[in-house]
């Protein structure tokens, strides 16, 4: 059986909020190392991969592999009943029909209990290869969100060009064009505000802004975001959490 206690329900709330517009039904795969999720969006252009390590839970117990087939809209409805600071306990049997969620406030004088019906989801099995990227850019997640939102007003797609000292986001649309150039810089007082670039070779790729704007819903999970780029390889957008991550992969536009 699964029993997992999360100190802050807000972590799961933010994770679900970040991915629910990309995928609707998906399996939460639970085993002794933690809870993971991998799913492609319906159009097979983007993929989300989420991991919550057992270290993020206290206690965490999962005797055998359990797949929890969950409709994320249903989970969102139930999680609305939890405060961010509530303690959240997830429980499921070995071959579960439902997932049990208990929310307790920090004073421990209120507890709420919900059960969500589970579904059988036949999901593609995906292997994510280890990849050496040409460029890796770390920037404030709020900055990335603002850039994607601003450029999406002008165009459906953005070109990301990484060079040794800067990363440029540019777009062109019917009303005109726009670009944002971020120079590599280190903010010693506020490291989360820094922009860093690791470059093997310069790279320039074009992506759909609709998806990137969607990924930015994960900004609440982390003050920084990491973009990894290589030619003809899906872009990796990673939000790290204290004990886990949410990663999005997005295919570049390659003239189809």
């Amino acid at each position: 059986m699964l029993e997992a206690r999360l100190e802050q329900a807000g972590v799961l709330k933010k994770v679900v909020e970040a991915i629910k517009d990309l995928v609707q039904d998906c399996n939460f795969d639970c085993n002794d190392s933690g809870i993971a999720l991998q799913a492609m969006d319906n159009s097979h252009v983007a993929l989300v991969s989420m991991s919550l390590s057992h270290e993020g839970f206290s206690p965490y117990r999962c005797d055998r592999n359990i797949a929890l087939g969950i409709n994320l809209n249903s989970l969102t409805k139930v999680l609305r009943a939890a405060q961010n600071e509530d303690i959240l306990t997830l429980k499921a049997a070995d071959s579960p029909d439902s997932l049990n969620l208990v929310f307790e406030n920090t004073e421990r004088d209120r507890s709420s209990e919900y059960d969500i019906k589970l579904m059988d989801i036949d999901q593609e099995h995906l292997g994510i290869p280890d990849t050496d990227y040409s460029a890796t850019v770390v920037l404030p997640s709020a900055e990335f969100q603002r850039i994607c939102r601003d450029l999406s007003q002008l165009s459906e797609s953005v070109t990301i060009e990484a060079s040794k000292s800067s990363v440029k986001f540019s777009c062109s649309g019917d009303i005109g064009n726009g670009s944002v150039n971020l120079r590599q810089h280190q903010d010693l007082e506020k490291p989360d505000q820094s922009t860093s670039i690791e470059l093997v070779e310069p790279v320039s790729l074009t992506f759909s802004l609709k998806y990137l704007v969607n990924f930015c819903k994960a900004s609440a999970l982390s003050p920084t975001v990491k973009l990894s780029l290589s030619t003809d390889v899906p872009l990796l957008v990673e939000y790290k959490m204290e004990a886990g991550y949410v990663r999005f992969y997005l295919a570049p536009k390659i003239g189809d």
Binding site: M40, S43, V45, G127, P234, A251, I254
Partner: peptide
């Protein structure tokens, strides 16, 4: 559908 093909090849969909 080059994009979908790229995703399927990259992620080794079984």
């Amino acid at each position: 559908y080059k994009t979908q093909h790229l995703m399927i090849v990259f992620f080794d969909v079984l």
